[in-house]
Write a protein that binds this DNA or RNA. Structure first.
Lengths: 345, 345
DNA sequence: TTAGACTACTGAAACGATTTAGTAAATCGG
DNA sequence: CCGATTTACTAAATCGTTTCAGTAGTCTAA
């Protein structure tokens, strides 16, 4: 008894079994008004019995859409689940995408090659925090799909969601300078270097550095910048140990992310430095945990959920061919908590 | 000057422009050995100039694969970014999926209809923590794709990753009983009720309840169960307030998740109850934050990353048609910290 | 010299749906 | 009762690739 090697049940099979044309089966699914209710019910029943389900790729190919949007970001696949900043952004984005009944395809930058970007079955892309000169940006644009850039200058014709990183960073630095600090350390996220070849860096980092530096002129303070390799507390701790062994020691540390600042607080504790009495620490992002550290972290708030929501909105607008003004640069603001205090020489 | 309305550059266009057949262009991409290096280079150059990129759906349709796996779970799209347990699972899963250069498509259960499951362009599914009798399980199976079940009994022929929820819960309850507690409150995740209609419940909840109850016989202790609607600290706090206003008051609370336990700790603090002197609290999951609460949370550890890794492995094995034994039930164990203490009547 | 094996490329048939245009029958207004 | 519209359904083209089978032409071995 030669059993047919397993093959998909196809629309044609259903049509034959029901004694109708393929078009009718298709219509039963997609245009109920095109056939009599009785027949439709019968067709659907036959389909059910045969265990038929339409092939999503075939359908997508014909219709020109798949019902999913891709998120491209500059780290490992697991990053948005591990990093609180990315996670919040994704939550904002998700809420909009979900309301539109779309799926979300995660496309990490750190894949062997760019195959994933070229083959991702999506209707549009959100490019999150990729480095400005990343070649992958070109690959995305080649797809010719609706695209939104986040934390990236973007391209003419494509909306971008931007945050006032520069202003926030400047406020953070000005805050410390105002407290009398004159020796500042900066725990910096990857900056990409002059050659612009390091792709793990993102544009926000550069804007933040610029902001820090912008607060300096005329104050007579100095600033020592130390770059970390990854956005992790452990890296922040390591950088803090290095910066705090400088002579003279910085009396305040500006951290380009709260993740780094968490590590800095740990390191300070281990080194027996009291925060903020011996050392002031200022973070960036205002992740939920920043409020719960001891001491609670002074940091720069950026509207992460809102950022995601805007990215989603702008992408949907493109998908639906509706016009939608991209938002102005989203504001940041300094949140004063307990980890920063005035300098006591 | 009638501009052609924007149309995709297709493989055929490239073929014409390069003066070769479509097959050759395709081969230039997919089978370099099938044509001379010189021609290949020329074809690729033409393609580049025309801004051509192969249509992923057409390619996927023909080849029978898309290079992405779907994750189906029982909550909102943003859940895995917001819930620490799901996030850790996803990190484990991601690490494996990424190593295989695949994308990850998030498919939330809470979508208007089941369209997403039927249309998701993926090569396989991970079904995470869906309720046993959820109709969506059928929809997934109808797709006829490789599938792995997590926290779900699954189906014959499909591997499942299971965790010893029952044993862990029993250990938690036994721990409290051993400390002399005789009045226990349970802050329960949605259990689905007898009608099995509530889909926001998952099987792990039931196993945990069973575990708690299994420790009870012969101890003379009683147990009051209160179900929450969602796995959020705020819900845990609310449940705690209700349970702690019972007369006589429970001296210990078993929480079905650390998220709930976090809320319980908050509520206790607000009610002026000291933990563990006045109230013992035991969580479940052992999320990273459990170690940092004050007091640190006694909880049941489950291997979340490992769970994700197994799910990924089992799915990949199916995709590659390699045999792979599903793992035995993964172990849980009680982690004693500071939130549980002996009963002082 | 010639059968056989490569090499470099092409033609046409899939893959599995949707959709446009069209046909026959039923319904309608007057 | 007749032409016009509507209803219910179908044939065939199409979406953009990949791949099987095939065709010249070149190379090897005896």
């Amino acid at each position: 008894m030669p059993v047919n090697p397993k093959r998909r049940t196809t629309l044609r099979d259903v049509a034959e079994a029901a004694g109708v044309s393929p078009s009718t089966v298709s219509n039963a699914y997609n245009r109920p008004d095109q056939l009599s209710p009785g027949l439709r019910e019968r067709v659907l029943e036959v389909a059910r019995q045969l265990g038929y389900s339409p092939h999503p790729l075939a359908r997508g190919l014909r219709r020109g859409q798949v019902g999913a949007v891709g998120v491209l970001y500059g780290d490992s696949l697991s990053y948005p689940f591990a990093d609180p900043v990315a996670a919040l952004f994704m939550q904002g984005l998700s809420s909009v995408i979900e309301a539109a009944s779309l799926g979300l395809l995660l496309v990490p930058r750190r894949t062997v090659d760019d195959a994933l970007v070229r083959t991702a079955a999506v209707d549009g892309f959100v490019v999150y925090s990729l480095f400005e000169h990343d070649a992958l940006v070109e690959r995305v644009l080649e797809r010719g799909l609706p695209t939104v850039f986040v934390d990236h200058p973007g391209r003419a014709g494509f909306p971008a969601v931007r945050v006032d990183d520069l202003g926030g960073a400047q406020a953070a630095a000005a805050h410390l300078l105002g407290l009398g600090h004159t020796r500042l350390g900066v725990v910096a996220l990857p900056l990409g270097g002059a050659d612009a070849a390091n792709l793990s860096c993102c544009n926000a980092s550069r804007a933040r550095l610029q902001g820090y530096e912008g607060a300096l002129p005329g104050t007579g303070a100095w600033m020592q910048v130390l770059e970390v390799a990854e956005n992790l507390p452990s890296e922040g701790a390591r950088a803090a140990r290095d910066l705090l062994s400088l002579k003279p020691r910085p009396s305040a540390l500006l951290c380009m992310s709260d993740q780094l600042a968490l590590g800095v607080l740990d390191a300070a504790r281990q080194m027996g430095l009291r925060v903020p009495e011996d050392l002031s620490v200022v973070g960036f992002d205002d992740i939920p945990e920043a409020r719960r550290t001891i001491p609670a972290l002074t940091t720069v708030h950026q509207p992460l959920l809102e950022k995601g929501v805007w990215a989603g909105r702008l992408l949907l607008a493109q998908l639906r061919q509706e016009p939608l003004e991209p938002p102005p640069t989203l504001p940041t603001h300094l949140v004063l908590r307990e980890s920063s205090g005035s300098f006591r020489g």
